[in-house]
């Protein structure tokens, strides 16, 4: 498994767990009494934890075998990166339009912002997942 594929696994796991927790909290009675500040704090924590997990994983991989750590993408990495981004583009576009339509039909601003966040996270998960699939296939 290449360095970039390992980093994709770390990113998709951290994002899946972090944002999964966020949306479960948001959509269940657990978060009924939570304030907007709580959610902003939770969101910032999740972003920090995701970035932190990737930095720690990079450091651990570097310490284990520095020859495997490539900070620059080679041509296959670039192809996979591009394909993943293309795959995520249309779900992102449709999702943003969908959130806009929801807002037009009278949903509250926080709900629309959370819908937009869900769209962005979903698109990112599609991008990461498809890139992992391409690394696994080739």
């Amino acid at each position: 498994m290449s360095f970039r594929e390992k980093m994709l696994w770390v990113a998709i796991t951290a994002m899946g767990l972090g944002f999964g927790f966020y949306f479960v909290t948001l959509l269940t009675p657990i978060g009924e009494n939570a304030t907007a500040d709580y959610y902003v704090g939770l969101l910032l924590s999740i972003i920090g934890i995701t970035i932190g997990a990737m930095l720690i994983a990079t450091l651990l991989l570097f310490l284990r075998d520095r020859s495997e750590v490539h900070f620059t993408e080679d041509e296959r990495d670039r192809d996979i990166h591009k394909s993943g981004t293309q795959m995520a583009y249309y779900p992102l576009l449709l999702g943003v339009w969908g959130a806009g339509i929801l807002y037009h039909h009278g949903v509250s601003t926080p709900t629309m912002l959370n819908a937009l966040l869900a769209v962005i996270v979903s698109a990112e998960m599609i991008r990461l997942g498809y890139q992992i699939y391409l690394y696994r296939k080739a």
């Binding site: 498994m1 360095f3 970039r4 594929e5 490539h70 080679d74 041509e75 296959r76």
Partner: peptide
């Protein structure tokens, strides 16, 4: 070649 080992293998 400026490629990773995994790319050469692929």
């Amino acid at each position: 070649l400026g490629l990773t080992r995994q790319t050469v293998a692929a």
